[in-house]
């Protein structure tokens, strides 16, 4: 089991080489990303952390095939930018639930788009409602849900499309601290049960990145560059206890110092 995972780790599912992105034309442009190098191996959870407005969402848009880089190459599961749409699971910063659909009909949207019959889609969704804390709310409309539930519904919608790459854009930024730490633990458990999925998690919360990911990329303010990439290995299993260990606090302050030093560069 372990050796299999080791060998899988060698395969780069996502590879980004020297990607730059400029938005807008003429004199009104902004350089959003500059010479970004990035990779993620199969089964890895990789965080991208950076200050607000540094281009994190744009980076995920590029990984999802929504935007083209101006230069550099993007490869995800052997596919390039032009062919990426529809093969990468992407959960955006906003939950984007459709207000006219019930929770059930929202979460099966992706399956519906894949041409899977509603009946089969509903069955697949029902199986997971419980682990997403949504059972009993299948027939509710999104307006009736709390922020955390809306996020989980959006997440379930992404998971059900069953892509092996998941892009998560600040999934918990809209939640209060208590809800957020619940959701982080919930996500950690969930990701452990999907150990074949490659996850790119964007956040500006250092603790969240440390708690959830195998590797961390730190980005500079706009134009976003990768300042440092660091592998995270903990002596303890991941749980709330980890957060109070010396190893955790030391790593956290080191990452923070990278973030802050990159900030003063500009």
């Amino acid at each position: 089991m372990d050796s299999k995972r080791e060998s899988n780790l060698k395969e780069k599912i996502i590879e980004v080489v020297n990607v730059s992105r400029r938005i807008g034309q003429g004199s009104g442009y902004v350089d959003v990303l500059a010479n970004v190098d990035f990779y993620a191996r199969r089964g890895e959870v990789v965080s991208v952390i950076g200050p607000s407005g540094c281009g994190k969402s744009t980076f995920l848009d590029i990984l999802a095939g929504l935007e083209r880089p101006d230069s550099g190459t993007v490869t995800v599961q052997g596919l390039h930018t032009e062919n990426l749409l529809g093969s990468v699971g992407y959960m955006q910063q906003k939950d984007l639930l459709l207000p006219w659909r019930t929770v059930m009909n929202n979460v099966i949207l992706g399956l519906e788009m894949q041409g899977i019959s509603k009946k089969i889609a509903r069955r697949q969704a029902t199986e997971r409602m419980d682990s997403f804390g949504l059972s009993g709310f299948e027939d509710e409309y999104p307006y009736a849900l709390s922020g955390g539930m809306r996020q989980r519904a959006a997440f379930l919608r992404t998971i059900l499309t069953d892509t092996s790459v998941l892009l998560l854009d600040e999934p918990f930024s809209a939640l209060d601290a208590l809800n957020r730490s619940h959701m982080q633990e919930w996500l950690l458990n969930l990701l452990e049960s999907y150990d074949e999925k490659t996850v790119v998690l964007v956040t500006h919360d250092v603790e969240e990145a440390l708690f959830l990911s195998d590797r961390i990329y730190v980005m500079s303010p706009r134009p976003g560059r990768i300042v440092v990439a660091e592998k995270i290995v903990w002596d303890l299993p991941r749980s709330r206890n980890l957060l109070s260990t010396q190893q955790f606090t030391e790593t956290k302050s080191r990452i923070l110092s990278y973030l802050l030093s990159s900030e003063t560069v500009l």
């Binding site: 095939g65 749409l85 529809g86 990468v88 955006q92 949207l109 788009m113 894949q114």
Partner: peptide, 10 residues
């Protein structure tokens, strides 16, 4: 963003 979401789902 909603259009983006639809496009990522094919």
């Amino acid at each position: 963003d909603m259009q983006k979401m639809m496009r990522t789902m094919g």
